[in-house]
Amino acid sequence: MPYAANADLPPSVREHLPRHAQDIFREAFNHAFDAHRGEPRGEEAAFRIAWAAVKRSYAKQGEQWVRSDGAD
């Protein structure tokens, strides 16, 4: 299910990622969800793709997600 706003994201995303990272996750998830619509594991693929998108700009340090050096 696509997410209309960051407030709609699952708690595991919303409560742990900074706002900008949530934007990245939501946009990547929604795009991937549409691209994999109708596939048996499409939602699972969309979650993997969204987390990969976040990890291109953010890294987890301890319990916090912080922007990586050189991130856009």
Rank of each mutant, 00 (worst) to 15 (best):
M1W: 08
M1T: 13
P2D: 15
P2L: 15
Y3S: 10
A4E: 15
A5L: 08
N6D: 07
N6W: 01
A7L: 13
A7Y: 14
D8A: 15
D8E: 14
L9C: 12
P10R: 11
P10L: 07
P11I: 14
P11E: 15
P11N: 15
S12H: 10
V13F: 02
R14K: 15
R14L: 15
R14W: 09
E15F: 03
E15C: 10
H16W: 07
L17F: 12
P18L: 08
R19Q: 05
R19M: 04
R19L: 08
R19E: 07
R19P: 11
H20K: 06
A21E: 03
A21H: 01
A21L: 06
Q22T: 01
D23S: 09
D23P: 00
D23K: 01
D23F: 04
I24D: 00
I24F: 00
F25N: 00
F25E: 01
F25K: 00
F25T: 04
F25P: 01
R26C: 03
A28Y: 05
F29K: 01
F29M: 03
N30E: 06
N30M: 07
H31S: 09
H31A: 13
H31L: 09
H31M: 07
H31N: 04
A32K: 00
A32N: 02
F33N: 01
F33S: 09
D34L: 11
D34A: 13
D34V: 02
D34G: 14
H36N: 15
G38S: 06
G38L: 05
E39S: 07
E39P: 01
E39C: 03
P40D: 08
P40H: 10
P40Q: 11
R41L: 11
R41E: 11
R41S: 09
R41N: 12
R41A: 09
R41Y: 15
G42C: 04
G42N: 05
G42D: 00
G42T: 02
E43A: 08
E43R: 07
E44I: 14
A45Y: 06
A45F: 05
A46L: 03
A46H: 02
A46F: 02
A46Q: 01
F47Q: 05
F47A: 01
F47R: 10
R48S: 14
R48M: 11
R48D: 14
R48L: 14
R48P: 02
A50Y: 02
W51P: 09
W51Q: 09
W51C: 04
W51T: 00
W51R: 00
W51L: 10
A53T: 04
V54Q: 01
V54T: 05
V54H: 00
K55T: 10
K55N: 12
K55G: 04
R56P: 05
S57C: 08
S57K: 02
S57N: 12
S57T: 09
S57V: 04
Y58L: 06
Y58M: 08
Y58A: 09
Y58D: 01
Y58V: 08
A59K: 11
K60M: 08
K60Y: 02
Q61V: 14
Q61H: 13
G62T: 08
Q64K: 13
W65A: 11
W65G: 10
V66W: 04
V66M: 10
V66N: 08
V66E: 12
R67L: 10
R67W: 03
R67F: 03
D69C: 01
D69W: 05
D69S: 07
D69F: 03
G70W: 03
A71Q: 11
D72L: 11
D72F: 14
